[in-house]
């Protein structure tokens, strides 16, 4: 923890407010993320956790506040948005692989078209990442021929191909069959150890305990409590977090 105080903020979110129509989805969010930090965001459904991280790469527009990602302030400017998106990768709950492309083509798409790499370079790198997530033998198959766990690992490899500085995980294991969750978490643990900045929206408290530098609890569009993993689980301060923990941990422990 001490050493990380020296590192600079890679994401700075201040006074962020977002509405869906009349619905106030995010209320005065302030949050900084340092380079290399692993942040876990949790909270009941509808609490705005996904919305928050989707604001970071501008998949959601927000009405008030500032987000600065690696020195670039998010505005409507398409150029800036693309620049940020090339540095921020996202892994989705439903994988969102491109079903009309083979696995390896899914991986090489962004390097070729966004980062102007040659086909050969991109392919070589793609195969390397597929090996890292342990599915190199599926490279020429199509996404729908793979299991959910495999697809999510491909999705992670796809987002790694553009050498992002930040990775956003939007409930990466929620759509998976139980026996496939650990294979995805294993990959995420490996990544976390590698020193990349990560914000994970997840309900996998085991992962949060083991890997997170900080855990953020959200409810009704606001950050209710944030703490390091040990105190987060041992000494929850707010009633809402206590209730939430009692609900999700009853079956785990």
């Amino acid at each position: 923890m001490e050493t990380e105080n020296n590192k600079s903020n890679i994401i700075e979110i201040s006074e962020l407010n977002k509405w869906y129509g009349d619905f106030h989805a995010l209320k005065n969010i302030n949050m900084n993320v340092k380079e290399g930090e692993i942040i876990v965001v949790c909270g009941p459904s509808g609490s705005g956790k996904s919305t928050l991280i989707r604001c970071v790469n501008f998949l959601e527009k927000f009405q008030e506040g500032n987000i600065v990602v690696s020195g670039i302030e998010l505005t409507d400017d398409a150029q800036k948005i693309r620049k940020i998106r090339s540095e921020v990768a996202m892994v989705f709950q439903h994988f969102n692989l491109f079903p009309h492309l083979t696995i390896v083509d899914n991986l090489t798409l962004a390097p070729i078209w966004v980062h102007n790499e040659t086909k050969e370079e991109a392919r070589e790198k793609a195969l390397k990442f597929l090996e890292r997530v342990d599915i190199s033998e599926q490279a020429e198959k199509y996404p729908n021929q793979l299991s959910g766990g495999q697809q999510q690992r491909v999705a992670i490899a796809r987002s790694l191909c553009t050498s992002p500085k930040i990775m956003l995980f939007d409930e990466p294991t929620s759509a998976l069959d139980p026996e496939m969750i650990s294979e995805v978490l294993d990959v995420m643990v490996e990544l976390a150890k590698g020193g990349i900045t990560m914000i994970c929206v997840t309900h996998e408290m085991g992962f949060a305990k083991k890997m997170a530098n900080r855990i953020i609890f959200m409810d009704e569009g606001q950050i209710v409590e944030e703490n390091d993993p040990i105190n987060f689980f041992k000494n929850p301060e707010s009633n809402r977090l206590q209730l939430f923990l009692s609900q999700i941990l009853t079956h785990d422990e």
């Binding site: 998949l59 998106r85 090339s86 921020v88 996202m90 989705f92 969102n96 692989l97 962004a110 966004v114």
Partner: peptide, 11 residues
């Protein structure tokens, strides 16, 4: 999700 994934990788 296809639109979002395409956006997210910077296309």
């Amino acid at each position: 999700g296809q639109y979002e994934a395409a956006d997210a990788i910077g296309l």
